[in-house]
Write a protein that binds this DNA or RNA. Structure first.
Length: 597
RNA sequence: GUGCCGGUGGUCUAGUGGUAGGACCUGAGCCUUCCAAGCUCAUGGCCCGGGUUCAAAUCCCGGCCGGCACACCA
């Protein structure tokens, strides 16, 4: 725990993140990423985009963060995101009012649907008591608490709108157009990186539970009957799984296996989910999560969201607790079906059959000049009912008359007027609703994981040193360049040139000539800069090539190499194509008296 | 949202009913040929509002923020 406090202190002091709006007293649940943190977060997002958008061949969009109420009626967030709370006047405990009623009253299973007033009544009628202290709850107000931020769109009372509670809906609602863009071909995937908002009752644990956070989500649209993931790509990826069965068992344990075996043995039900667990495993490794403090945990049955058939979380260990940093859900056709029902558009794709098929179809072509005068305003509904009847029960048209019900009234029509016939139609395909596989990542939590997993302390020459062991690709600054001492104009001049040329090469560089060389190394260690280049006198001496020293952060060891090689070697190491150790084989170590323990 | 505890320079912290010290950091200068060295100088603070009092950073009340526990986490 002491280490966590030090990390939080470092995060504030060195500008990784801090509570927002401090000048105005602060706002709970909102954090600002400082210069170092914003850079680190940006690098995480870039790495995510590289993997989940570019390498997987998906398309990225950017949707608005405010959406109208209708979207959330369809998605289920308006109802499902609500909590009814009742507070005990005696002991102050808050309870889920709907749960109390469901427990106490026979025959009520979904109290939430009853509304606040009715729930208050029920509490009074049934004399419900506080489960904690036993005091009477009758008469206590029931408060509706929705986790979505509400706003209004347009002037005046306008149209109600909400800050999106997940980026996913921005993708789902645009499906009809995205489908066009994908030329109607499944499978295709759409990604989005951006903020989402939840008005948490009680934001906690620093940056872990906040009210505004960044999600990186992929919605993979598939044909459930035909599309299969390229599991071969991740067959051998080793993962630590924590299936529901193990969580429920008394002596439950992790299952260390490979993606291929986990699918074969049915531990992971959905091959698509398994595929993305494999992809995610490799991605987390790449960005620098400590894989000994990482696992995939299956949701317990009671924990799953309304839409999820099977769901796994990626979790990282933070100060002894496991936190969710990504979720992998097989959402089925839930979202697209709902938006199809609630909206004007069609949320399906047309799936062509291998061969067109011929079907016999019962059709009616009612004589409206007869139905109109006879049934007046109901005529159109009657015609529609006739077609429905023809679909369901063609034999009903065999007699002289046929009867249909519309709004509880019976209408009898001459078969002749209905103009019934059976036609042969050619169908070249059908409209299907794609299923959705959703890997959804929390960016801020990933950033925090990298900070905590990377935070290290060791001893150099008897002094405690703290450093952030970030992956070179993720580090806010790639390399720092120093003149060994600042009162030598030649060293300063050369170091300035070196930092300029590295910047030209597209490397993120910090130049620093303030304070002793040791202090400058420590400064960079604290913000995770993986490499430091120092220009010293030795490198300028002689008639050979000019050389500089290159120091690696974690080991604090140095090598000496020609200044002309620096940019190339750094680029190779940043790309992950070369390690510092390999450099050590080709260049001379620098003899220093630094000892790291 | 409830309960308990807390809030003093950028960070960590001492302190008293009479408006505050330290350490580190930071900046300027000196020194310095590889790991937070030293010297000089400098910047910078009592969370906000109300009350009690001659006087409040200190006591009281409320708010805001934070930590922990409970509740919550679709």
């Amino acid at each position: 725990m002491a280490e966590q406090n030090e990390l939080m202190e470092l995060a504030k002091r060195r500008g990784f993140f801090f509570g927002s709006n401090g000048a105005y007293g602060g706002t709970a649940g909102f954090y600002t990423f400082g210069p170092e943190g914003a850079s680190l977060k940006h690098n995480v997002e870039s790495a995510w985009r590289d993997q989940f958008t570019v390498r997987l061949g998906n398309d990225e969009i950017e949707a608005p963060t405010i959406m109208p109420e209708a979207v959330f009626e369809a998605s289920g967030h308006l109802d499902g995101f609500d909590d009814m709370l009742v507070e005990c006047a005696e002991c102050g405990e808050s309870h889920r009012a709907d749960h109390l009623i469901e427990d106490a009253v026979e025959g009520i299973e979904d109290a939430e649907a009853l509304g606040v007033d009715r729930v208050e009544e029920l509490i009074r009628e049934h004399d419900l008591a506080c489960p904690t202290c036993g005091a009477d709850l009758a008469g206590e107000p029931v408060e509706d608490f929705n986790l979505m931020f509400e706003t209004s769109i347009g002037p005046g009372s306008g149209q109600p709108g909400y800050m999106r509670p997940e980026t996913a809906q921005g993708i789902f609602v645009e499906f009809p157009r995205l489908k066009e863009y994908a030329r109607g071909q499944l499978p295709f995937g759409v990604t989005q990186i951006g903020p989402a908002y939840r008005n948490e009752i009680s934001p906690r644990r620093g940056i872990i539970r906040v009210r505004e956070f960044t999600q990186a989500e992929l919605e993979q649209f598939i044909d459930p009957e035909e599309d299969e993931p390229p599991l071969g790509e991740v067959d051998d990826v080793e993962v630590t799984l924590y299936p529901a069965t193990e969580q429920n068992a008394d002596d439950g344990d992790y299952v260390d296996t490979t993606i291929g075996e986990a699918v074969e043995e049915g531990i992971i039900g959905s091959p698509w989910v398994a595929y993305y667990l494999g992809i995610a495993q490799e991605w987390y490794e790449r960005v620098g999560v400590d894989m000994d403090r990482f696992r995939f945990r299956q949701h317990l049955s009671g924990e799953r969201a309304h839409y999820a058939a099977d769901c796994w979380d990626a979790e990282s260990e933070i100060s002894g607790n496991w936190i969710e940093i990504a979720g992998f859900a097989y959402r089925g056709d839930y979202d697209l079906t709902k938006h199809g029902e609630y909206s004007e558009d069609r949320f399906t794709v047309f799936k062509r059959y291998d061969e067109p098929i011929t079907v016999e179809k019962a059709v009616v072509d009612p004589d409206m000049s007869a139905l109109g005068p006879e049934f007046g305003g109901a005529a159109a509904d009657v015609a529609e009912a006739l077609q429905e009847l023809a679909d369901e029960d063609p034999e009903a048209f065999e007699g002289d008359e046929v009867t249909v019900d519309v709004d509880g009234k019976s209408y009898t029509v001459d078969t002749e007027v209905a103009n019934f016939s059976v036609e042969e139609q050619t169908e070249s395909g059908e409209h299907i609703t794609p299923h959705v596989v959703e890997p959804s990542f929390g960016v801020g939590r990933t950033v925090y994981t990298l900070l905590e997993h990377g935070y290290s302390e060791d001893e150099v020459d008897g002094e405690t040193r703290s450093y952030l062991s970030l992956a070179p690709e993720m580090a806010p600054t790639n390399v720092a360049v120093f003149p060994l001492v600042s009162n030598d104009s030649e060293l300063v001049e050369v170091a300035t040139e070196v930092s300029g040329s590295l910047r030209e090469a597209g490397i993120s560089v910090t130049y620093d000539d303030s304070g002793s060389i040791g202090r400058r190394y420590r400064r960079q260690d604290e913000v995770g800069t993986p490499f430091c280049v120092t220009v010293d006198h030795e490198g300028l001496e002689g008639d050979g090539k000019q050389t500089v020293t290159l120091r690696e952060r974690d080991s604090a060891t140095q090598i000496r190499l020609p200044v002309d090689d620096v940019a190339g070697e750094l680029e190779a190491m940043l790309a992950g194509d070369r390690s510092f150790d390999e450099l050590g084989d080709r260049y001379d170590d620098v003899a220093t008296d630094v000892t790291t323990t």
